[in-house]
Design a protein around this nucleic acid. Sequence first.
DNA 1: CTGTTAGCGCTTTCAA
DNA 2: TTGAAAGCGCTAACAG
Lengths: 347, 347
Amino acid sequence: MDGGDTKPTKRKPARSASRGVTMEAVGRMAGVSQVTVSRALSDPSKVSAATLRKINEAIAATGFVPNAIAGALASSRSKLITALVPSITNIVYAAMIRAFSQRMREAGYQILLSETGFDPAEEERTIATHLSRRPDAILLTGIHHSPQARRMLLASGIPVVEVWDFTDSPIDICIGFRHVETGRAAAEFAVERGDTAAATISAGDERARRRKAAFSEHFTRLTGTPVAEIDFDEMATVARGRKGMARLIDDHGFTSGIVFCSSDVLAHGAIIEATKRGFAIPGDIAVIGFGDQEFAGDVEPPITTIKVDLEAFGRTAADALLRRFEGSSTPDTAIDLGFEIIRRQSA
Amino acid sequence: MDGGDTKPTKRKPARSASRGVTMEAVGRMAGVSQVTVSRALSDPSKVSAATLRKINEAIAATGFVPNAIAGALASSRSKLITALVPSITNIVYAAMIRAFSQRMREAGYQILLSETGFDPAEEERTIATHLSRRPDAILLTGIHHSPQARRMLLASGIPVVEVWDFTDSPIDICIGFRHVETGRAAAEFAVERGDTAAATISAGDERARRRKAAFSEHFTRLTGTPVAEIDFDEMATVARGRKGMARLIDDHGFTSGIVFCSSDVLAHGAIIEATKRGFAIPGDIAVIGFGDQEFAGDVEPPITTIKVDLEAFGRTAADALLRRFEGSSTPDTAIDLGFEIIRRQSA
DNA sequence: CTGTTAGCGCTTTCAA
DNA sequence: TTGAAAGCGCTAACAG
């Protein structure tokens, strides 16, 4: 760029390249040193009013934006939290992260978010790149991680929050609920309703499968009746809910009983299909969903579902971290936020 | 922390504090210098096979994870892209970002994502904090930004991509579609269908309002009939779709004609409400949505909607950036990806 | 209240 | 193929 001179110049750094205004430039303009600018920004009370004013003027004039990279390197606090979720288009995770982000942002943190797509290998790789950003904490979805991932996490020395599932022995902090319990509760709910037949429709989510397995096992134990299961490897969609119900009816002769779906979206589709085929909901076929999504109570018939407080997960996770950053002496470990069956009309 | 000695020690940095393994430590272990480790990582071909092997062993043994912060500061390339969307729980933005992230991740970039909640002031603040991370590029939703935001963006000197809307004079790169055109196209579609009455239901989104305004204006121009408008300040939900339709019927005596909704979710709710009240869809009331979301074709009746290819926005944005990073001589500027009316049964 | 001095852990020349 | 040296822009003691 700047000349092709062969003369071994004193290696003057190519500062020119407008890589942004520096504190030093601001300081020069305000007639103070660089450190004073730093102070003015981090703790204005440590700088005289007059100096502060000049610095602020200089900042405004230059459009200075502090370099957080340099700050993080120097202070070894990045004010960055990284988060991994299976999917950002799944409202369940998106809502949780939203609540988490809002709380953390208020405290001055930013969130670096990545999708892992339910793949442990991908999660491991992503954890490594995330840790390379030296976040002040990391949030993971789920409690199952590869051994190598656990090693890196532990070695990083930062707080690790596992959400959306529950274990008594988390890596560090765990905020979630027991998926298996939801399946059991749904089975009991079905039996209490008087159902003598049951089926399930599930999407490709490890936790969804655990809920389903618990439902089936418990229902069979209580009634002696086996449960027909329809599983999809992909994410939940209305179309798959319809297809699942169609298979249940066509292939399994399921025309009466309750269907436990791994998400409200699937339940919605199942209801649409059954209704279209002339079955009464819940008269002939009852449907129970999972998630209590926005629409669950507003479709016809309103969907009976298992509700978990998504926002609460995010908020609680953020609060636990914030408390930790403040050096709380009583660190949170495992918090079970539970769930609740919302009885509406579909079951 | 380390003792209360008054003796002015040689200020030995508190290195101890396990802030992670450094390249220097790895190098020491492998019997080479720190730079060699750096090279081994960035371009293995520049290091002898034997050295490479020893370095890799040391890395494995120590669990070394490179410090991207230090790397970014030194190279002034952060391999970080920053993105701002109005809402991450809105599938429209989530799907776009997902496609964008995937592409960028494959190229070694990570995405720092924030929500702005449709608020320009919040956007401006967020842009500032994002720029402080010295991203290699920034992606914004929409084309309207505060003057101060524009200034910061320009001053940053990095590529700026504006998506999801279209202008011929973008800050830098723009990838989107003309919202106004969608409204017009919908109005024409209605008139061609023979509708002589129309209404709208919109959520709190500036672009949704522009689509609606274009629809109403055009419909009125073509038919001479005013359009009843129901506006919500909040996000689209099935419940609001129902409420909107209820108001249209109860307050505006709207019992026949077409309803242009700012999203498929609203359309879905509107259809549910009208159906429940005994109106035939599309016989009595026709409904047209926006977005062609996953469920649009699978509910009853399937929703006629305006489709925009969400994934394409993300992919195209990523490709444009990647090309730019490679120093393309023909920079993309404004790309109009258009839209399409998907005719199903609701209209 | 303000400035000086050392780094933070890398990448980038330049030299060997 | 390897190493030495010089920063990147900021924060953290420490000294006035």
